[in-house]
Design a protein around this nucleic acid. Structure first.
Length: 230
DNA sequence: GTCCAGGGCCTAC
DNA sequence: GTAGGCCATGGA
């Protein structure tokens, strides 16, 4: 059987993105993702969480708050070592200190240090600007756009690739923008829903992905599993 | 002690 | 254009 025939045969059994959303939403309830007291804090969290467990990011953000550094002007003017030590728990602290400074310099120079000013521009424009900054790739840019700027753009992360290829919805070799386009095409354009959907994916990933036998309790197991979540 | 986490950059081919 | 190495801490 050719792959395309297999897909035709299975097409009715593969859940839609909305079905998966509804299942996870009923299972977890509202996630309220992303945590943060301000759009700026959310943007900083997006950089600090790169390849890092969120619990470590929380420690770093708490330290930034304690030392009164959670402000773009403070970040660019404070002692570099102080900044590095504050964010140390989030790992890659030298790289991330540089990335925070580059982002804050950009935010100050172009938008007076206010995420809210940046959010006034259109999504494509902001995304291009963010991607031009060293240390901000597609996922981080989209985290900032969706959660800090409240623009309707879907965030794709490792969990998204893992979970949706597990159920035969995505192919493993799909590139970031391909996956994002797929979600944009098959979901209503809705900021609140995009936020919640990504939150639900993160929670599912944390709770079940790569955690056999916990994986056997995943709320998505009622759908066909094409491959293991590894 | 070992593995892994919500990435992204740089280099070599 | 892409595979592989590198960056670092903390929890399981």
């Amino acid at each position: 059987m050719k792959p395309c025939d297999r897909r035709k045969r299975d097409i009715k059994r593969i859940p839609t993105l909305m079905e998966i959303y509804n299942t996870l939403s009923q299972f977890y309830g509202p996630t309220g993702w992303w945590p943060g007291d301000s759009p700026f804090e959310i943007a900083i969290g997006a950089i600090l969480t790169q390849n890092t467990a969120w619990t470590n990011v929380e420690k770093a953000i708490e330290k930034l708050k304690t030392e009164n550094l959670l402000n773009p002007y403070k970040i660019i003017h404070c002692d570099r070592l102080q900044l590095e030590q504050a964010i140390r728990p989030s790992g890659y602290f030298r790289q991330k200190a540089e990335r925070l400074i580059i982002f804050c310099e950009f935010l100050i120079e172009k938008y007076g240090g206010k995420i809210e000013n940046m959010a006034q521009r259109n999504t494509t424009y902001i995304r291009k600007e963010l991607l031009n900054l060293k240390g901000i790739g597609p996922e981080t840019a989209d985290d900032i756009l969706l959660y800090a700027c409240e623009h309707s753009i879907f965030v794709v992360d490792a969990y998204t690739k893992r979970i949706f290829s597990r159920h035969g919805i995505l192919n493993e070799d799909m590139k970031y923008e391909e996956i994002q386009n797929y979600f944009h095409k098959h979901l209503p354009k809705d900021v609140h829903m995009y936020k919640e959907y990504h939150g639900l994916i993160v929670w599912t990933g944390k709770d079940y992905c790569r955690k056999t036998p916990k994986c056997s309790q995943c709320p998505l197991n009622k759908y066909p599993i094409i491959k293991d979540c590894f």
